[in-house]
Amino acid sequence: MIYQTPREETVAVKDVSFDVEKGEFVSLVGPSGCGKSTLLGCIAGLQQAQKGSITLDGKAIDNNRHSIGYMLQRDNLLPWRSVWRNVVIGLEIQKKLTEENTEYVSSLLKKYDLWQFRDSFPNRLSGGMRQRVALIRTLALKPQLLLLDEAFSALDYQTRVNVSCDVWEILRRENKTLVMVTHDIPEAVSMSDRVIVLSKRPAVVAKNVEIDFGANRPNPIQVRSHPLFQQYFNTIWKELVQ
């Protein structure tokens, strides 16, 4: 992926190749400005890479865009819409406001304790709740693959740990596949099955770190006190500072 501006061109991502299994949670970490977000943007189809291919279920990503949900740094809820009208906006845009789909959205809101706030406006909600609303807005379109781009970095520490745990549990329960970008190593370790460490720009894959906390994996809050947690942190940290 090469960015062109009249003054110069910047090679953001050069040689990155990886596979993600269905249901797997993968984090991309790397030094800031290494092209993590660009990579995610390419997978989401918001940017076009000059070379290379991205496939989902064996099909080119361009024909498969609706199976991907993309969440950015802030919750980006529309402040003039109520919670309900925010979560259905994706369905509205794709003209899929069917009874079945709205039923599904209602069930998500109920399941994740937001049903009583469906008529509230986003400014009445806490940061964590807003992030959950944003997640449900994405889930409403039933994507197989979710892309999170520093989705929690705008939240304060406590909220972000809680929200990342919420999101992890929701995505596990809904059987989604996750690719996320973060600069927060504990967050990456606590949420993923695998952490891909990228090098400085232009990004290449520096290391694949499998995160294994056993078959009955504790949630991202509990896992932070697991004996192996610090070990994984150190491995990734060492890789990043090289």
Binding site: R65, N76, E92
Partner: peptide
């Protein structure tokens, strides 16, 4: 632009972006 990117990621075309984000934002 983040609001526009979000709507775009749902597959909104230019007209939808205008009516659902740009216009209400600029009221």
């Amino acid at each position: 632009s983040a609001l526009i990117a979000t709507i775009k990621s749902f597959g909104a075309d230019k007209k939808q972006i205008f009516l659902k984000v740009v216009l209400p934002c600029n009221l």
